[in-house]
């Protein structure tokens, strides 16, 4: 299992824990992630809100680098994943976009590089059964709410990640490492992350509603695979007390962090200390 790895800008800033835990888990499971040299920003929401060609050309630059490596591109950030998948879809389906992207890059990109989220690699290429065998410290029935958000799932014909209304990839991974994957109705809701700085009130309200749903389902923690969702649900808990009057203390971990703990990787190597809400319940369940 060898892939071209695209870390994304957040991996060196607000989502270092996402990046650290991804690399640690990959190493422990024998998944070879080759970082793309000279990778550049995917443009994120700022590019697609501004200009369609900019939004397609920025990810295409990285996809062309992965193509030269002759490997599938693995992304652990759901937003970068979405932008890269959208680029593939756009250049394949719109000859006009492909032509303009070629003009911007000085090189044609045909949309042929497969873009995989690290969760897809764990789910399909490795598989939950092999993951289960590698577990050293099962979660002892920890109640986990698996939260998907938007970028992985929608639009389904672009991402092809899982069933857009009732995805189960994260739940299958949670069960494999000994957790109890909760049935809960909040898993495909939007956290409001796109307006995190511009309309913080909306992000706080959306994210508080999601935590309420998870809490009502009995969740001891939430897992996510998106740095925007993680930031909204974790960091913004500090603001929720002002609007809801409640202190939730709900740990929000990257799925790779939870998997890493179950593989016996030291919490520090997984960036657990970087979480804003300390995951006490999680560490207790694992006797850490």
């Amino acid at each position: 299992m060898k892939y071209a790895y695209y870390p994304g800008c957040a991996s060196h800033s607000t989502a270092r824990d996402m990046h650290e835990s991804c690399l640690a888990v990959a190493k422990a499971l024998g998944i070879d992630l080759q970082e793309i040299k000279g990778w550049t920003c995917c443009g994120a929401s700022a590019a697609h809100q501004t200009d369609r060609i900019l939004a397609a050309a920025l990810p295409a630059a990285n996809l062309l680098l992965a193509k030269e490596m002759n490997l599938d591109m693995v992304v652990n950030c759901a937003a970068c994943y979405s932008r890269s998948k959208n680029t593939n879809y756009d250049v394949v389906n719109s000859p006009a976009v492909r032509k303009k992207v070629k003009n911007a890059l000085g090189q044609d990109y045909d949309g042929s590089v497969a873009v995989r989220h690290f969760v897809e690699v764990l789910s399909h290429d490795l598989g939950p059964a092999k993951l289960k065998k590698a577990v050293k410290q099962p979660l002892n029935g920890l109640k986990v709410a698996s939260y998907y958000g938007c970028y992985l799932l929608r639009p389904p014909e672009v991402t092809g990640f899982d069933n857009p209304e009732n995805p189960t990839l994260l739940e299958n991974l949670v069960e494999a490492i000994g957790g109890e994957a909760l049935e809960w109705p909040g898993k495909v809701e939007c956290c409001g992350g796109a307006l995190n700085l511009t309309r913080t009130d909306i992000t706080v309200a959306r994210s508080a509603a999601i935590i309420e749903i998870a809490k009502a389902a009995g969740a001891e923690c939430i897992v996510t695979a998106c740095p925007m969702c993680q930031t909204s649900l974790d960091l913004r808990q500090l603001d929720m007390v002002k609007t809801t009057g409640k202190t939730y203390n709900m740990p929000v971990l990257y799925i790779t962090q939870l998997i890493g703990l179950s593989l016996g990787i030291p919490p520090k190597e997984l960036g657990i200390n970087r979480l804003m809400v300390p995951p006490k319940a999680v560490l207790q369940a694992l006797n850490l």
Binding site: T40, T50, D51, L58, N103, A104, L105
Partner: peptide, 18 residues
């Protein structure tokens, strides 16, 4: 660590409103 010249080229070509 990024290939900055490539990004500049993309911005110039897209004549971005950004």
């Amino acid at each position: 660590g990024a290939d900055k010249s490539k990004v500049k080229r993309i911005f110039n070509a897209a004549k971005s409103k950004g």
